[in-house]
């Protein structure tokens, strides 16, 4: 599938997954990949995480939009921008836009927002999703990538509009919930990309999350991103002594053991990963995009570019209707 077409399928992409699987990494990767094929991209963060900015070598950003990687240059790529959305600021903005700035000052100033949020849970989520919807309708960027809260929360986060429609039957919150639900359930406007690691527990959670999101929210699911796959490397099953003899090289004392231990470890992780990929494919009929494991603890711009290249290759390998390979 042509990446430009892939990213143009819906303006909003929600990236969701269990904590620790690399949701923020995947959000950065997809944003960078989309920018490389010419789409201006805005990453929306809801947890105020610093990780995203440093992946682009930038200082932390706030509620106001910041550029993470500027467009132009020889590749002709577009901007990647980012901002953090918080329910309080989204509410203030909403009320002010609707001529209720007096109410808004009182609500936020008195701490009553917590009380109101308690009265109708999901209000904070709807405020954020409502702001995302506004960014979508005003076409704030060609692509909006929402780095969603961690898995358990992702479901309640995305379920919030349905819950609120039941709890709040009239008024602006009700209208907002209805609009957000329209956005979430329209595959032409929004899709959810689930992220996992090729390990047992994250795969189980991903499968569960996928079914609840489809059944309970009615969102359309894009391909699954499997993060952290060890790259294929030939010769890992060769005995180091034999490999040295074949290469006409000599090993230092003890080195054969070090090389063999590292190779065995990687092979056993790879076997486990392959097993989990198969299981994921059997249990969830969604196509997969694979991202390599990077041997680093600090992702920087070069790493994000590498991952973006892998994502683009994965997207190209999808069949034209997005269901393959």
């Amino acid at each position: 599938m042509d990446p430009a077409q892939f990213f143009a399928a819906s303006r909003v992409v929600i990236v969701a997954g269990k904590g620790g699987v690399g949701k923020t990494t995947v959000s950065a990767t997809l944003a960078r990949a989309a920018a490389q094929v010419g789409l201006t991209t805005l990453v929306v963060d809801v947890e105020g995480k610093s990780g995203l900015a440093s992946m682009f070598g930038q200082p932390a950003f706030t509620y106001d939009e910041a550029v993470l990687s500027p467009g132009g240059g020889p590749g002709g790529s577009a901007d990647v921008r980012a901002r953090t959305l918080t329910p309080d600021l989204a509410l203030l903005e909403y009320l002010e836009d609707h001529g209720l700035s007096k109410v808004s000052r009182r609500l936020v100033g008195s701490g009553a927002i917590d009380m109101v949020a308690t009265a109708a849970p999901g209000i904070k989520d709807i405020l954020i999703l409502g702001k995302v919807k506004q960014l979508e309708t005003t076409a704030a960027a060609d692509l909006l990538v929402l780095d969603a809260p961690a898995a358990g929360h992702a479901i309640s986060f995305l379920r919030s509009p349905r819950g609120l429609l039941d709890a709040v039957r009239v008024g602006p919150i009700n209208a907002q919930a209805r609009d957000v639900l329209d956005l979430l359930t329209d595959p032409q406007r929004c899709q959810v990309i689930l992220v996992t690691l090729p390990e047992e527990t994250p795969v189980n959670e991903l499968v569960e999350t996928a079914y609840s999101l489809e059944d309970e929210v009615g969102v359309s699911l894009g391909p699954v991103v499997v993060n952290g796959l060890y790259a294929e490397l030939d010769g890992l099953d060769t005995d180091p002594v034999a490999a040295a003899a074949a290469a006409g090289a000599s090993l230092r004392p003890g080195e054969a053991d070090h090389l063999a231990a590292a190779a065995t470890f990687r092979r056993s992780r790879m076997a486990l990963q392959a097993e989990q990929l198969d299981r994921l494919a059997t249990e969830l009929p969604l196509s997969q995009i694979h991202l390599p494991h990077l041997f680093t603890t600090d992702l920087g711009p070069a790493d994000v570019d590498l991952l973006a290249a892998a994502a683009l290759a994965g997207i190209r390998a999808l069949s034209a209707d997005g269901t393959g390979p």
């Binding site: 490397l233 030939d234 010769g235 890992l236 060769t238 180091p240 490999a243 040295a244 074949a246 290469a247 090289a249 070090h258 090389l259 590292a262 190779a263 470890f265 990687r266 041997f295 680093t296 603890t297 600090d298």
Partner: peptide, 23 residues
């Protein structure tokens, strides 16, 4: 040793040593 099995075995060990040092 690029292109040989031994080269890959070294590359693999180097990967783990790199990330280990960062950790």
């Amino acid at each position: 040793l690029a292109g040989t099995d031994l080269g890959n075995l070294y590359a693999n060990l180097a990967d783990f040593r790199t990330v280990g040092a960062m950790e």
